[in-house]
Simulated assay, not measured.
Amino acid sequence: MASNAGEGIVYVIDDDESARDSLEFLLDVAGVRVRSFTSAEAFLKAAPALAGACVVTDVRMPGMSGIELAEEMKRRQAGAPVIVITGHADVPLAIQAMKAGVADFIEKPFDDQVMLTAINNALAQQAGNDGAAAERQQVLDRIATLSPREREVMDGLVAGKANKMIAFDLDISARTVEVYRANLMMKMQARTLSDLVRMATIVSVSR
């Protein structure tokens, strides 16, 4: 079956070689890039790139468990979604997993389609998060090019004020506001005022 995970990669972490091989085969057939590790410690030591990635880990392994790995990734603010596989599901374990920020909790034996759906959802979510973070940084970079006065005019526009009101607030002429407005719209690459408002919302500069 075709995957909709795009350019994502899945890191499989399991001390059971046959389980790793089985998941690798499933993901290869689905067209998803995969890399496996024998332990959580090996994964953390390798520190692979997490952009566009998700982690599939067994819960019970020698050394660090899958949930402890999820907790450690959360502590490090390593934003890849974690899917935990368990052969011994119980309510306390599920609660612990959710508190660790686990994206999904799948019991063995699992249906291949269930696993692929969970992985595709996690990768799609991650791609969205990466895209949003990149867009936010792009907007911040554009804002950094504005002069202090252009930033003040932008704040006024985002607040819904007319040019004359902004001119009054800043004690400058309406014509000068128009010049600053044209300059900042060009620097922000905003075609319309609604574009500018959307950018301001992304970085929460409106107030």
Rank of each mutant, 00 (worst) to 15 (best):
residue 106 I to M: 03
residue 49 A to M: 03
residue 70 A to Y: 07
residue 76 R to Q: 15
residue 75 R to H: 12
residue 74 K to W: 02
residue 59 V to E: 14
residue 41 E to V: 12
residue 51 A to N: 12
residue 82 V to K: 03
residue 100 A to I: 05
residue 62 P to N: 08
residue 60 R to V: 15
residue 98 M to E: 05
residue 42 A to Q: 09
residue 77 Q to E: 13
residue 76 R to K: 11
residue 36 S to W: 01
residue 92 P to V: 03
residue 62 P to K: 04
residue 85 I to K: 02
residue 44 L to C: 08
residue 70 A to C: 12
residue 87 G to I: 02
residue 108 K to G: 06
residue 107 E to Q: 14
residue 79 G to M: 11
residue 44 L to P: 11
residue 52 G to W: 01
residue 95 I to S: 09
residue 91 V to W: 10
residue 54 C to T: 13
residue 40 A to H: 05
residue 61 M to P: 14
residue 36 S to H: 07
residue 70 A to T: 02
residue 90 D to K: 02
residue 110 F to Y: 15
residue 42 A to V: 01
residue 110 F to V: 14
residue 108 K to E: 09
residue 41 E to I: 06
residue 60 R to M: 13
residue 34 V to Y: 03
residue 79 G to C: 08
residue 82 V to G: 07
residue 88 H to S: 12
residue 35 R to L: 14
residue 73 M to S: 11
residue 68 E to K: 04
residue 52 G to I: 01
residue 94 A to N: 10
residue 53 A to D: 05
residue 83 I to A: 11
residue 67 I to P: 11
residue 93 L to K: 09
residue 101 G to N: 04
residue 93 L to I: 12
residue 41 E to L: 10
residue 44 L to E: 11
residue 109 P to Q: 05
residue 94 A to V: 11
residue 86 T to F: 01
residue 50 L to A: 01
residue 56 V to H: 03
residue 82 V to E: 03
residue 67 I to A: 08
residue 102 V to S: 06
residue 110 F to S: 09
residue 82 V to P: 13
residue 99 K to A: 14
residue 47 A to R: 11
residue 71 E to I: 01
residue 93 L to Q: 13
residue 98 M to C: 10
residue 100 A to T: 08
residue 76 R to N: 10
residue 48 P to S: 04
residue 68 E to H: 01
residue 100 A to H: 02
residue 63 G to V: 07
residue 76 R to G: 13
residue 55 V to Q: 01
residue 94 A to M: 13
residue 83 I to P: 12
residue 44 L to V: 12
